[in-house]
Every structure is written in C-alpha cells, then in structure tokens.
Design a protein around this nucleic acid. Structure first.
Lengths: 147, 147
DNA sequence: GCTTGACCTTCCCATCATGGGAAGGCCCAG
DNA sequence: CTGGGCCTTCCCATGATGGGAAGGTCAAGC
C-alpha cells in the first residue's frame, strides 16, 4: 500500500502522513525498491487512530502520548482518562472564551440599527478608551491561537 | 511616547505594535532623532481600538476593515454590523465544533473506569477501524487552526 | 516497446499572530 | 562616564497544514 492509498484509506492526507513520520508520531515505513513508502495494515490502523484522535481535537503531542499508551499493554486506563479529561477542560475553557466573545459581539450588533446612518455602537464601543486589562491570561497555554 | 510606553498604555506588546505597522494596520509613526518610534495620543487610541477588536476575536484582516470604517465618517453602520454578525457566525460554528469534541470525549471518559486496569474504552474507541468520513469540511475556511 | 498521465520522492515556502533573541545604538540616573 | 534599561533591525520558531517545483516511477493503452 503506497502513501496515496493509505491516505485514501485513513482520511489523512499524504502530506500529513509524511509530516507525522517526520515528527516521530509514526515509525518510518518500509520502502519499495523505487523508494516509495509502503504501508502495512497495522500502519494504516495507526493512521486511523491518529485521525480519530485529531478529530477529537488532540494535539500531535497528546496523540503521541495516547499512542504510547495504546501500544503499552500494561498501561493504566487512569492515565488515558487523565489525558482525556485534561483535554476536556481545555476544550471547555475555549468554549467559554468564544462564548464570551460571541455574546459581547451579539450585544453590540443588537444595539446597532444597521442602516445607512453612520452612528454605530459597535465602532463607538471599540473606539472608547478603556483601561488596558493587562491581558490577564487566565486561560494559560494552548490559547495562543484561539482568536 | 515611545513604543514601550505605548505598549504599556494599550496592552499591545511592542512586538505586536511593530507587526501591525509592518502589515499596514497602523500608519508608520513619527520617529525621534535617534530613530525611536514616537506615538501620539491618537496613535494610542488606534492601538486600543485594535486591542479591543482583537479581544473580540477579530482577525487582523477584519480589524483592518473595521478601522477603515472607523475612520470613514460617512460609513454605513450596516457595514459594521455585517462584519460583526459574520464574525458571530464563525464564533458560533467554532463553539459547536468544540462542543461536539468535548461531548464525545466526556462520553468516552465516563465509560472509562479509570483505575489501574488496562482496559480502556477511550483507547479502544480510538483504535477501532471506522470508515474515514472523508474529512468533510462543512465548516469551511477559518477553521484550519481551530483544534 | 513507447508514450502519457498519474503517481511518488525530496525540498522549499507560506500561512497567522506571536514571541525569543542577537547585535548594536541611545538615554538617563547616579 | 558608566551601567542598565530602553530602543532599533534582522532572523528564527511556533503548529498543522497545504502549495508547488523538479525529478523519478509505474501502469494502461496504443
């Protein structure tokens, strides 16, 4: 199975398969005589694992941990649960942040008559001078790219 | 007012102020004889505008549009409202996506006994072979960096 | 057997907003 | 006049993903 077939079979693009290999998420596959990557069914299985974890919003780093645990027969399910719950916390914090932004924006839009007149509470609100709230990053890491 | 003071006064880092200048979001400020950037109160005002828009989750590109409208006295508030509501839609779609991920993960975690035994439904679920749902990107652009 | 097009390889570059850090210049308080 | 804290520009990194070029390979149809 070459990379294109593996991509079609797993829903992970060929580009990303090479990337995952490069960052050590998956082991280097066998190569054909011409240098083509050749994937076994178990490689495909691992790629599907990755894709599903990715769809759940895990970062590549977390997926790496999960794969360690996946391959470690003696692992404790508590370890996996901890990673999952940690991730749920991050997701919920993201949700809350986005929710607040949406709420603020909807409030502004509601008070904006939205016709041809130039008076616009949205712009006025943005332009008003407020104290800089010192960018307090209560949310911590993982939110750098949220906005 | 030099860049450090402007940064402290607006909550926008000096690095980002230079970046916004570079990408044309703000005009190039005056320079002191030594080449230091010198910011006027109105520059500071613009920076605060930017910071507030950024806190509402607008991208730099959108902030650019908003600033155009801000400076255009004859603009229609409808234009601003359209940008705001468009952004609300994006935020709500993000929320829904994150919510789904969190829901799935919480469900998995709930069914995981989380003790020392190695049986773990989370890992099992990830490892199961499902059809690749063809990564259908119903959400469209703007979600590339969501996860 | 040869052409053609669809694959594969590696390598480099771009994204977006942000920060780190180096090398060198400037300014002010002691 | 010195030291530390500013400032300047320039380069590089992030994370996950894709685009694209240049060149090699494979298989189907002629």
């Amino acid at each position: 199975m070459n990379i294109g077939e593996a991509a079609a079979a797993t829903g992970v693009s060929a580009k990303m398969i090479r990337y995952y290999e490069q960052v050590g998420l998956i082991k280097r596959p066998l190569r054909s005589m011409a240098g083509y990557r050749v994937y076994s069914p178990s490689d495909v299985h691992a790629l599907r694992f990755i894709r599903r974890a990715r769809d759940l919003g895990f970062t590549v780093e977390q997926i790496g941990e999960l794969m360690q645990l996946w391959q470690d027969r003696g692992r404790a399910s508590a370890d996996v649960k901890a990673i999952a719950l940690e991730h749920v916390k991050v997701l919920e914090a993201k949700m809350r942040e986005i929710e607040e932004m949406a709420k603020a924006l909807k409030h502004l839009a509601r008070t904006c008559h939205g016709d041809g007149r130039p008076d616009c509470p949205i712009i006025e609100e943005l332009a008003e001078s407020h104290e800089p709230p010192a960018r307090d990053s209560r949310l911590g890491k993982g939110f750098e790219r949220l906005r």
